[in-house]
Structures are given as C-alpha cells and as structure tokens.
Amino acid sequence: METRYRRGAGQGDHRRVTRLLLRAFALAAAVDLVSLAAGWDIGHMVAKPLLMPLLAAYAASRGAPRLLIAALLLGWGGDVLLLFDADPAFLAGMASFAAGHVCYIVLFQKYGTDIATVRARGGFLAVIYVVVLATTIQSLWPDLPADLRVPVAGYSVLLTVMAYLAAARMGRVAGIGGVLFVLSDTLIASGVADWDQLPRPDLWIMLTYVAAQSLLVTGALGERRLPGAAYGEVRSTTP
C-alpha cells in the first residue's frame, strides 16, 4: 500500500511539472506575440529565447527521444542568432535550423508510419511539396542577395523534406506543423528578398513558427511508435 502511494504521488508530481512547463511555454509565447503586436522590442528579446527551451523541457518531461529535444534546441539556437541583424548571424541561424530539420527528418523516418502506408498516401503529397518548393525558389531567386541564394535554396530543400515527412509519416497534426514551418520561413525569405510585407511581419513569422513547433511536438508525441507516447500511456495506467 505504501509503495503504491509513493508511486502515485511521484506520478502526480511529474504530471504537475509537465503541466507547469506547458503553461510556462504558453505564457512566454503570449508575451512574445503581444510584444511584437505592440512593438515592444524588449519583451520580444526576453521572451523569444525562452520559447524552445521551455518546449524542449516539456517534451523531455513527456519522455520524448533525444532527436526531438535536439531539433527544438537547435531551433532555439536559430532563434537567438536571428535576433542579431547581421548576415553572418542570419547564415548561422539558418544553419542551426537546418540541423534541426535533419533531426526531425531522422526522427520521422525512425518512428513514423510504416513505409507501405506512406506509399499509399505519400505520392500525391510529394508532388505537391516538390511543386511548392520549385515555385518558391524560382520566385525568390532573382530578388535574394547573390550570396544567400544557394544557402536559402539548400535550406528550403531540407525544410520541405521535413514538412513532407511530417505529413506523410507522422499524421495530420505534425503535417500542419510542417506546413506552418514552411510558411513561417517563406515569410522570412520574402523579407530578405525585399518583397512587400504584411503589417507587423515579425508577428506573423513568430505566430506561424510557434504554432509549427508546438504542432510538430504534439503530433510527434501523439504518434504511437514514438517513445514519448508509450511513456505517457504507461504512466497513466500504472496503479
């Protein structure tokens, strides 16, 4: 009886920590987005670097694999680097995000839906993503600075592969996250290309980015073959 009580108390503490981390992430996201909407730069500078560490801590508390944690922390590296308005920082930030996409790609390949199912639904999706990728690069290419054209194109390929695998192997929630990631980074690239922007462009970039990472984590942890999903099921059913 005493052992069962201690085990139940420990599980309750763990669930409270998990909920606290999720609420802290939501609060940081709200502060960041409100700051961007209000033009309060200090709020954005403080809140943005907190986002991915909090989301990574939440995922870790759910028993997420290292690849998912690494993808989020590499996203944090990109977030911090992109706070600096300089070409070297932009390239380093893009490299950090690219490494994060590689982690996502390996994660989705390792834990996603079996290949037979992917073949059944993936062909049409692949065509769509290839067309979007080719159209985007072709449209942006003439207006991008010459030294950024090849890096942006290479990054776009990795981003598109990640988004495709999220949809094809991890399901609808992660798939929407992948699409939003593509949209967020396309907004960034259109700014670099000096295209006309929406009012408060950083707000829309961060809104789609935060939603993208949140949905990728939610979709990944909801996938039955992912360790975090099994971990959550075991914890919820242990007496």
Rank of each mutant, 00 (worst) to 15 (best):
residue 30 A to E: 01
residue 164 Y to L: 11
residue 48 K to R: 15
residue 192 V to D: 07
residue 172 R to P: 02
residue 155 Y to E: 02
residue 132 V to W: 12
residue 22 L to Q: 10
residue 98 A to C: 09
residue 124 F to K: 14
residue 164 Y to Q: 00
residue 222 G to S: 07
residue 112 G to L: 08
residue 115 I to C: 00
residue 195 W to H: 11
residue 222 G to E: 06
residue 75 G to D: 05
residue 218 T to R: 13
residue 171 G to I: 09
residue 168 A to T: 08
residue 165 L to K: 02
residue 67 L to E: 10
residue 150 V to W: 15
residue 17 V to R: 15
residue 157 V to F: 14
residue 2 E to S: 03
residue 124 F to E: 02
residue 137 I to M: 02
residue 123 G to H: 12
residue 151 P to L: 06
residue 163 A to P: 04
residue 148 L to E: 01
residue 49 P to Y: 13
residue 66 R to E: 04
residue 156 S to D: 01
residue 106 V to T: 09
residue 147 D to V: 07
residue 123 G to M: 05
residue 50 L to H: 04
residue 123 G to F: 10
residue 39 G to K: 12
residue 103 C to F: 15
residue 96 S to H: 11
residue 22 L to T: 08
residue 157 V to T: 09
residue 84 F to R: 15
residue 122 G to Y: 13
residue 50 L to A: 12
residue 188 I to W: 04
residue 9 A to E: 11
residue 98 A to T: 15
residue 203 L to D: 01
residue 79 D to I: 07
residue 144 L to Q: 07
residue 224 R to A: 12
residue 3 T to C: 00
residue 219 G to H: 03
residue 230 A to N: 10
residue 129 Y to T: 00
residue 77 G to C: 15
residue 115 I to N: 03
residue 32 D to Q: 12
residue 92 A to T: 08
residue 123 G to V: 07
residue 215 L to W: 05
residue 180 L to T: 06
residue 171 G to T: 10
residue 195 W to C: 00
residue 42 I to W: 14
residue 11 Q to S: 02
residue 63 G to N: 08
residue 146 A to I: 06
residue 199 P to N: 05
residue 152 V to H: 02
residue 77 G to Y: 13
residue 12 G to P: 00
residue 138 Q to D: 10
residue 27 L to S: 04
residue 237 T to S: 11
residue 128 I to F: 13
residue 149 R to P: 09
residue 64 A to G: 04
residue 194 D to K: 15
residue 50 L to W: 11
residue 45 M to K: 11
residue 94 M to W: 12
residue 5 Y to A: 10
residue 76 W to L: 00
residue 180 L to N: 04
residue 208 T to K: 02
residue 131 V to P: 03
residue 106 V to Y: 11
residue 35 S to D: 01
residue 79 D to Y: 14
residue 201 P to T: 07
residue 16 R to F: 14
residue 127 V to N: 05
residue 30 A to W: 06
residue 19 R to M: 12
